[in-house]
Every structure is written in C-alpha cells, then in structure tokens.
Amino acid sequence: MNDERRGQPLIDAVAGDEAPDSARRRLLKMAGAAVALTLAPGVTVLARDLVLKGGRKARSPVRYGLLIDANACKTGCDACVRACQDYNGLSHDPGPDNAQWIRKVTITDPGTGFTRSFPVMCQHCEDGACVDVCPTGASFRRPDGIVLVDKHRCIGCRYCLMACPYKARSFVGRVVTDQRPWAPRGKGTAEGCTMCVERVMAGKQPACVAACQKAGHKAMMFGNLHDPKSAIAVRLSKVATTTIRADLGMGPGVHYRGI
C-alpha cells in the first residue's frame, strides 16, 4: 500500500489498492446490481399482478359494504357496539388490551366546533394493508369483499395491527374461554370485525346494523354495493358520502355520510 493514500479514509475504504479507474467501474457495476436486486422483488409482484390481472381486478358481482350516516348517529348511543360485543362474545370493558371490533368515535373540528359521533370498524378494504402485509395470507379478503383473519394460519406477528390505518385490528392477549360457536377467537391471534359473516351468509344483517335499526336511529345500512338495485347502492348514488382516509387508496367498503 502506498503511504500517500493512507490519509484518505473514504476512497481508501472503497477503492482499495486498485487503480482508481477500475475501482470506480467496479463500484458502479456493483451499485447497479444492488439497485436491480433491491427492486426485483417488488417489480416481480407488481408485474405478476399486471400480467395476470391486466392491471385491474375483475369486478365481483357481490361486494358487501356499509353506509354509516353520521348525521343520524346519536351521540352517546352505543347500541351497535353492545350488539357486536354480545353477538361475538367480546368484553364490554374497554381495557387497553381488550379487542374493540367496533367503537364509537367522536370527531371535533377545533376551528369550527363541528362535531360528529359515529361507529368505526374494519372498513373491509378492496386493497387492505392488512391483507398485503400478512406474511401467511391469514389476513385475507373474500371474493364478496369481507376481510377476515383465518386464525388457522395466523402466527400472531401483529403486522396487520401495525399496518391498518383504522386501528380495526386487535390482538388477543388473554386466554379466551367463552367464545360464541359462530365467532371463534383465541389467544395469540389477530382479529377484527367479520361483518358478522355467519349472519350475512344466513341472509341477515350484521348485528350492529340490526341493533341500530332496532334503536330507531337508522344510521347504519348494509348491503351489496355492486348490485345497482340494492338499497345501499341506490342510497350511495343519491347522497354525498366519503370514506375514511380515502387518500390511502385502499378502497374501503364502509362509506360515511356527514363527516
């Protein structure tokens, strides 16, 4: 090694004893390879989607969704939350490690004082982050749009809890003994609103929607978003609605009016 090069730590560490030119060429080559290798996995997945699905998903004839009217939702009423807890066997106690598949959220605009209270649950997204990040595919979206956790596959890594923008996923941190036969849930797995899939499959409305109607508020509506004749689709075509964090482009299946 030459003595005069000793004082140049950066160049020295990279280029070593070679002629500067070949070293530079080699570095460039390597950087190129590194970039290619780094991008390869992502490009592969994207390319696969583009090739196999032509860049878009086929529109399924059924997409279950909800319409929540924050103007009709009554502050202080938690009939939907109670109904969910009762039907799915969840605790009524909102402790920090207890699951809340559905919760009442109150938002206030600090500038104008505008306030609304409404339920938030799993938004059953078209391209949910929870489905994307799940390493085992336990978090999945049914063809009819309901997003579920297949607890047979869930390993309890909680990546979906990290990824969900709606805080709709919970992790079961305790031994569960008093499950409902139609809502299996257990320690060590992630869970969230199932849109009461057993009820929906039996032709009924989700428990929260039924409870809201029973309470007389009619703030929640359930139905097939892709059936233009369904009540919910008709309503959605008439009133202005939005989805929470629409900017993320996940395509939530739960629409809100009045927020």
Binding site: P41, T44, V45, V131, D132, V133, C134, P135, T136, G137, A138, R153, C154, I155, G156, C157, R158, Y159, F171, V172, K187, G188, T189, A190
Partner: peptide, 26 residues
C-alpha cells in the same frame, strides 16, 4: 422475533402459505 409471536408454534404457516405481497414473507 419468533419467540414474541402470538403463536410461535405455528411459524411453519409462514413457509407453507407465503404471501409474497408481504415484506415479512420476503
């Protein structure tokens, strides 16, 4: 990472059913 999983015994699921949209699986 593995010992903190909710169900470390089921770790094989990550190998049997990998979801390649997940950076975790990668």
């Amino acid at each position: 990472l593995v010992l903190d999983l909710g169900r470390p015994g089921h770790i094989l699921a990550a190998v049997l059913y990998p979801n390649f949209r997940s950076i975790f699986a990668w």
